[in-house]
Design a protein around this nucleic acid. Structure first.
Lengths: 220, 220
DNA sequence: GCCGAACCGTACCGTACGGTACACCCTTTC
DNA sequence: GAAAGGGTGTACCGTACGGTACGGTTCGGC
């Protein structure tokens, strides 16, 4: 059976040793500077190139496995379904926003998104799709139930869940991701992330809140 | 004088023939598929590689000149300073939003941003900086005077102009740019762009409007 | 103790591409 | 009409990198 690579492509069963290899790819990746060659990966992971090709098929397979590997690490926590009142909603939204900001501003996310963007540019857009599904769309699917539960509880009002989510997405992310991808050296401290998450949540509730809107804030 | 390239790097004086070459780069670029080699550019532009190197120094110089060339083409219109009332403000904001959406969703912008992102990944981040300056920051500097004039006219209220702009940016762009960069095949028709621009403007005025807020809209 | 499988390290191959050199051509100038 | 300068087309070089082959080593099973 020559295609051990297929096993990795189909399910996410990764042996510990393979995990080490993928961690080496990640390490190399966020070292940046174009260092991501197959030879470099093999050296870093102390394995042979032949093993890399046996396990992952080719360079794209290795990158794909790495993206999946990283995605499998960051399955973030969910929200608390019962007793959803205004405070709990705001808290959950803030948590989502803060988590999302922390993810997109991490070096790992930036590096992986850059690779995926470059990959998408060259036609075969597998990586782009995978990153999108595990990032933008995954958080959408996780957040939408909260939004709809909050709507049913009469806390917020909207017609189109997708549109509401996209607005939230925009309020949270703003220009952060594109700036980071393009190499702008902004750094988000934990405090800034918390403040941004709170601001975005306030703004979102002002736009979509059903009862009396959240207090207007003019700064930030 | 061996460095004709320096002349292009410093000012934007581009001869018609050089413009043709840069247009060839753009054409090749949005054909995608990794076709952007120096040989391909030379063939497409019917010039010799030697000329390319003489004019632009090296591959990076050619890309940099291309980005500047494209940026010099899209200097968009400004707004009308006198008689700034609520309607004029909304109209100007919508025009900004629509223009910005049209730009970022164009094939050219996507292709150039992808190149710049890949470039930023490899350390030397010249292209990323240039794209950022001509995109994200340029529109910021053009929009901020409008926001501040509107504030002085008592139409909107905010403390931090930059923060207000970033919120507008987020409301307009949402997830469009990252999805396009990652290869998601969303297309924005003129009607959708207009609708999005109107929605973003309504939402922005709801958040920052000083008088009675713009009418809440629950759909879209 | 022997076998085979898995794997490491490394040498090697082919190719693509950035960059250079050169022969030829066309136009302008004196 | 000869010389000079700028440009085209092409052949060429060096290298980096994806991918393969192979000898050597470790280790589990019998």
């Amino acid at each position: 059976m020559p295609q051990a690579a297929a096993a990795i492509a189909v399910d996410d069963t990764v042996t510990p040793r393979q995990g080490e290899v993928l961690d080496a790819v990640l390490a190399l990746l966020l070292e940046g500077r174009d260092g991501l060659t197959m030879t470099a990966v093999a050296r870093r992971a102390s394995c042979s190139k032949e093993t890399l090709y046996k396990w992952f098929g080719d360079r794209d397979g290795l990158l794909t496995a790495t993206v999946r590997w990283q995605a499998s690490k960051v399955r973030a926590g969910n929200w608390d379904r019962q007793h959803l009142d205004a405070d709990a909603l705001a808290e959950s939204l803030e948590a989502f926003a803060a988590n999302w900001l922390a993810v997109i501003s991490s070096k790992t996310s930036v590096a992986l998104n850059r690779v995926a963007v470059a990959h998408a540019a060259s036609g075969r857009s597998d990586l782009g799709r995978i990153v999108l599904e595990n990032g933008r769309f995954a958080i959408g699917e996780r957040l939408k139930p909260l939004l709809e539960a909050a709507r049913e509880a009469g806390l917020i009002a909207f017609d189109d869940t997708e549109a509401a989510f996209r607005t939230f997405f925009g309020l949270v992310g703003r220009d952060v991701q594109i700036r980071l991808l393009l190499g702008d050296s902004i750094t988000l401290s934990k405090a800034e992330i918390a403040a941004d998450a709170a601001r975005a949540t306030r703004q979102f509730l002002t736009l979509f809140g059903a009862g009396r809107p959240a207090p207007r804030n003019r700064s930030n």
